[in-house]
């Protein structure tokens, strides 16, 4: 059974069919690419998968469970975490606290224990600190633990967003144009990070990307969207040599 199984997903905004009859099936451990020209509906697919928008039609299954009508919060608890095309960090909070927000669902104590700093508070906070530092090390952010997120350089902000998503211990990680706005150097580093996340956590990843080099370098499978519809789907090599895809990307 596929980890993520999406059938006939559609949504319209007014007259615009932003996503039309979208299907995808992602196996556990896969690194899957979602590509397409500007305005093709890629981010909208992410917003549908994470419950930000409710689809007009279609069904989304994660690990066999129907999550189509669940809220964004519930979907995260079910195991989907994401990053955003325009970075959304908790800017006024230190790097480590950004990650600790992500850990909050797994490391718990009561509100009263939190206000009194009693009971499980000390123990759980210590565990959270350790787990957060372990994650930050993976993303090479451990030295910036007390820096405010807004003061990080751009590339590190992207990494922190991934680290925060990973802190929720997802089954599926959605990355929306992680390389957007990066120089080639940073992009290279990012590819290493993504490879590391897969190796370290055995993570299943769905990735939106414009950068063809990045996509062809790391993704095993691709889905190409155009005007909200799936244009082509399959192994990376086959997709990239498909004449329809080339036409959509390079124009007539």
């Amino acid at each position: 059974m596929a980890l993520l199984d999406v059938n006939n997903l559609s949504i319209s905004f007014g007259g615009l069919r932003a996503v039309d009859d979208f299907n995808i099936s992602i196996e556990k451990g896969e690194l899957y690419g979602l590509i397409g020209p500007n305005g093709a509906g890629k981010t909208t697919v992410f917003n549908l998968l994470t419950g930000v928008y409710k689809p007009n039609e279609g069904i989304i299954r994660l690990d066999g469970e129907d999550i189509t009508r669940k809220s964004t919060i519930e979907i995260n608890h079910c195991g989907i975490a994401r990053t955003f095309q325009n970075i959304r960090l908790f800017k006024q909070m230190p790097v480590i606290d950004n990650v600790k927000v992500g850990l909050a669902e797994r490391y718990k104590y009561s509100a009263l224990e939190g206000i009194l700093h009693l009971g499980k508070y000390k123990k759980v906070e210590k565990e959270m600190d350790e787990e957060a530092m372990r994650l930050l090390k993976v993303f090479d952010l451990d030295k910036e633990r007390d820096t405010l997120a807004s003061n990080l350089p751009y590339g590190k902000q992207r990494k922190l967003e991934i680290a925060r998503a990973m802190a929720t211990n997802p089954k599926l990680l959605l990355l929306d144009e992680p390389a957007a706005g990066m120089n080639p150097n940073e992009t290279g580093e990012l590819m290493d990070t993504i490879a590391l996340v897969r190796k370290e956590f055995g993570m299943t990843i769905l990735l939106i990307e414009h950068d063809m080099k990045l996509v062809s370098g790391i993704c095993e499978k691709l889905t190409v969207l155009n005007f909200g519809r799936v244009l082509c789907q399959g192994e990376t090599k086959e997709v990239l040599t498909n004449p329809e895809v080339i036409k959509a990307y390079l124009g007539e």
Partner: peptide
């Protein structure tokens, strides 16, 4: 406060 959209998708 900092970003409710990100907070929701982080399970808050």
């Amino acid at each position: 406060r900092d970003n409710y959209i990100a907070a929701e998708s982080t399970g808050i």
